[in-house]
Amino acid sequence: MRFGAMVLTAAGLLLPAAAAAQPYDNYPVCLRVYGPVRYDECRYVSIEQCRPSASGIAGQCVVNPWYQPPAGPNARRAQRR
């Protein structure tokens, strides 16, 4: 019984940390690679930059849905209005 309680406590402590992790790098384009294991490499600033990496493999360049552009110099001014 104690072991089960320890496992549940440990899992409860680790879950919030795992949920807060960002799954993808903050680049606007990802290379989605298909195969036995599907994964995304989000390291590209444009589709054109990604295309040579996708050439010859089972891969596709896609827009990163989690991309967040950096705040511009007018971001603070827009928030005050």
Rank of each mutant, 00 (worst) to 15 (best):
M1A: 15
M1P: 14
F3N: 13
F3H: 15
G4Q: 15
M6D: 05
M6T: 14
L8K: 11
T9M: 13
A10Q: 08
A11N: 07
L15S: 11
P16R: 03
A17P: 00
A18V: 13
A21D: 03
Q22F: 04
Q22R: 14
Q22Y: 08
P23Q: 10
Y24H: 13
D25I: 01
Y27L: 02
P28I: 04
P28T: 06
V29R: 02
V29Q: 05
C30A: 07
L31A: 10
L31V: 06
R32C: 01
G35R: 03
G35A: 05
G35M: 02
V37C: 02
V37A: 11
R38G: 01
Y39E: 11
E41M: 13
E41T: 07
C42F: 02
C42Y: 01
R43Y: 10
V45P: 00
S46R: 06
I47T: 10
E48M: 06
C50F: 13
S53E: 10
G56N: 00
G56V: 00
I57D: 00
A58T: 03
A58G: 06
Q60T: 13
C61G: 07
C61A: 08
C61T: 04
C61P: 05
V62R: 13
V62K: 12
V63D: 07
V63I: 14
V63K: 15
P65V: 06
P65C: 12
P69A: 15
P69K: 09
P69C: 09
P69E: 12
P70H: 09
P70G: 09
P70N: 04
A71Q: 11
A71V: 00
G72W: 00
G72T: 06
P73N: 01
P73R: 03
R76I: 07
R77G: 00
A78G: 00
Q79T: 05
R80P: 05
R80W: 03
R81M: 03
